[in-house]
Simulated assay, not measured.
Amino acid sequence: MSMHEVLQQDRRLVMLRVLNESPAYTANESILDSSLDAYGHRISRDLVLSEMHWLQEQGLITCKDMSGTLVATITQRGSDVAEGQATHPGVKRPRP
């Protein structure tokens, strides 16, 4: 596995964990971007949006546009992956 893939899988796990711990299991692109920065993933907003769309395509989150800002809500499947109760290709498995 390449370093790029390791970082990508970790970013996705961080996003799911942030959503899983957020009030109403929801956060917007700005909160997710700031959270990724806090976890050492300094990436562009465009890449944050790309990851949000990928997670949505996988059925791990839902997204909706709220006046030009993308807002994500974790699904039950996404919550299971965030907590390590399920696995998904492309998302790092959390440590116990």
Rank of each mutant, 00 (worst) to 15 (best):
residue 41 H to Y: 05
residue 33 D to T: 02
residue 7 L to W: 10
residue 37 D to F: 02
residue 64 K to V: 13
residue 92 K to D: 12
residue 6 V to I: 07
residue 67 S to T: 03
residue 45 R to I: 04
residue 54 W to S: 03
residue 61 I to A: 05
residue 78 G to K: 09
residue 62 T to V: 15
residue 12 R to S: 00
residue 81 V to W: 13
residue 34 S to Q: 13
residue 72 A to K: 03
residue 20 N to M: 00
residue 69 T to V: 07
residue 27 A to Q: 09
residue 58 Q to S: 06
residue 48 V to E: 03
residue 27 A to M: 11
residue 47 L to A: 07
residue 80 D to P: 01
residue 64 K to W: 14
residue 3 M to F: 10
residue 10 D to N: 07
residue 36 L to S: 11
residue 39 Y to H: 15
residue 18 V to T: 10
residue 13 L to F: 04
residue 42 R to C: 05
residue 92 K to G: 09
residue 2 S to F: 04
residue 89 P to K: 13
residue 81 V to L: 11
residue 25 Y to I: 12
residue 25 Y to A: 11
residue 13 L to P: 10
residue 20 N to T: 02
residue 57 E to C: 14
residue 62 T to I: 12
residue 9 Q to D: 15
residue 41 H to Q: 05
residue 59 G to K: 11
residue 81 V to A: 14
residue 60 L to Q: 13
residue 9 Q to K: 14
residue 35 S to A: 09
residue 37 D to H: 00
residue 8 Q to M: 03
residue 35 S to F: 01
residue 55 L to S: 02
residue 55 L to A: 06
residue 8 Q to A: 03
residue 52 M to R: 14
residue 27 A to F: 03
residue 11 R to N: 09
residue 78 G to H: 09
residue 65 D to M: 14
residue 61 I to V: 08
residue 45 R to G: 04
residue 81 V to S: 13
residue 80 D to G: 07
residue 23 P to A: 13
residue 2 S to L: 08
residue 24 A to Y: 06
residue 5 E to P: 03
residue 59 G to H: 09
residue 35 S to P: 06
residue 59 G to V: 08
residue 75 T to Y: 13
residue 49 L to C: 07
residue 12 R to V: 09
residue 92 K to N: 15
residue 86 A to K: 15
residue 52 M to G: 09
residue 75 T to R: 13
residue 45 R to L: 03
residue 39 Y to E: 14
residue 95 R to M: 11
residue 53 H to D: 01
residue 34 S to G: 12
residue 55 L to H: 03
residue 82 A to H: 11
residue 69 T to M: 01
residue 10 D to A: 02
residue 37 D to C: 07
residue 22 S to V: 01
residue 79 S to Y: 05
residue 90 G to S: 11
residue 60 L to H: 12
residue 85 Q to V: 11
residue 35 S to L: 06
residue 70 L to C: 12
residue 23 P to I: 15
residue 12 R to P: 04
residue 3 M to W: 01
residue 31 I to H: 07
residue 18 V to N: 08
residue 22 S to Y: 06
residue 46 D to S: 14
residue 72 A to Q: 04
residue 72 A to F: 02
residue 64 K to F: 15
residue 51 E to D: 10
residue 52 M to I: 10
residue 96 P to E: 15
residue 81 V to R: 15
residue 26 T to N: 09
residue 17 R to E: 05
residue 55 L to Q: 02
residue 4 H to D: 06
residue 76 Q to L: 09
residue 92 K to W: 11
residue 29 E to M: 01
residue 49 L to P: 02
residue 68 G to R: 12
residue 38 A to N: 07
residue 71 V to P: 01
residue 89 P to N: 13
residue 52 M to Q: 13
residue 56 Q to F: 08
residue 75 T to N: 12
residue 70 L to I: 15
residue 26 T to V: 05
residue 68 G to I: 03
residue 3 M to H: 12
residue 27 A to V: 00
residue 53 H to E: 07
residue 52 M to E: 08
residue 10 D to L: 05
residue 46 D to C: 05
residue 74 I to P: 05
residue 47 L to G: 00
residue 15 M to G: 05
residue 38 A to C: 05
residue 58 Q to A: 03
residue 18 V to C: 04
residue 31 I to S: 04
residue 50 S to H: 11
residue 86 A to P: 15
residue 43 I to C: 02
